[in-house]
Structure formats: C-alpha cells, structure tokens
C-alpha cells in the first residue's frame, strides 16, 4: 500500500511541478491525476492491463476516506456569517433546480444520441 502512496505522491509532485513550470491554470493534483492515467494507459499497452496491487489498495483507501475528509470543509457552511444571509435563495436555487435541470437535459440528450444502439446489458 505504501508503494501505492509513493506513486500517488510522486504523480502529484510531478503535477505541481508541471503547473509551476508551464504556468497552467489547473490545480497540480488534477494534472497529477492525468499523469497517472496516462502512465496506467502506457503500462497497460506495454505490459499488463491490471493496476499494480499496491496502487490499487492505496487509491482505494484514499477514495474511501473522502466522505470523512470532506466533513470539516462542509461544516463551514454553517459558519458563513451574516454576510451570506442574502445569498441563500440563489445558492439553494442553483443546487436544486440547476441540478434537476442538468439531469433532465443530459438524460434526454444521451437518450437521443444512443437511440438505435443496443440496450445496456443490465
């Protein structure tokens, strides 16, 4: 698992470095994600399709931790203070109405684009 962490940290470090050198507007860790994805594709094409055991475990552990890592920042919503009071209507409308509209639009578009193809294997 520690070997997996080494891969993840190294990819993030490389991503941070690229971001600084190229002055990209993308976060370093997102670049790191792309780098790891490319690495896995190259490795898959050359040697072995399977993800290395350590990397598989390490990434699984971190992804499982996500709900816990997100709690503390999410709690900040309750401490935005009086300055945010007049922002709630727009905020609530954007996350509720906006999300429902997005799912309707995407569902209809994807349904139209895949019409005539075979049904999903469910």
């Amino acid at each position: 698992m520690l070997a997996g962490f080494l891969t993840l940290f190294a990819c993030q470090l490389a991503g941070e470095w690229l971001q600084r050198v190229l002055g990209l507007p993308l976060p370093g860790q997102v670049l790191g994600m792309f780098l790891l994805f490319i690495l896995l594709c190259v490795r898959g094409a050359l040697r072995d399709d399977a993800v290395p055991e350590g990397l598989s475990q390490g990434s699984q552990r971190l992804i499982e931790l996500l709900p816990m890592l997100l709690m503390a920042p999410a709690a900040g919503v309750f401490f935005l203070g009086a300055g945010f009071a007049d922002q709630w209507p727009g905020f609530i409308a954007a996350v509720s109405v906006g999300t429902v509209l997005t799912m309707i639009a995407c569902g209809l578009l994807l349904k139209m684009l895949t019409r005539g193809r075979k049904q999903g294997h469910d």
């Binding site: 962490f5 993840l8 940290f9 990819c11 993030q12 991503g15 976060p27 370093g28 860790q29 997102v30 790191g32 994600m33 792309f34 790891l36 994805f37 896995l40 594709c41 898959g44 993800v51 990397l55 598989s56 390490g58 990434s59 699984q60 971190l62 992804i63 931790l65 996500l66 890592l69 503390a72 920042p73």
Partner: peptide, 21 residues
Amino acid sequence: WLNFLLGPATVALAVPLYRQL
C-alpha cells in the same frame, strides 16, 4: 493537514477512471 490528503485522493481517481476505459 487532513486537507493535504485531498491531493493524493484526487490523483487516486485516475485508477477507477483507467478501469472504465
């Protein structure tokens, strides 16, 4: 320092993505 882990956790998302290729 817990937020630090969000970095490698983002990089880790490449693994499920690769599996869906």
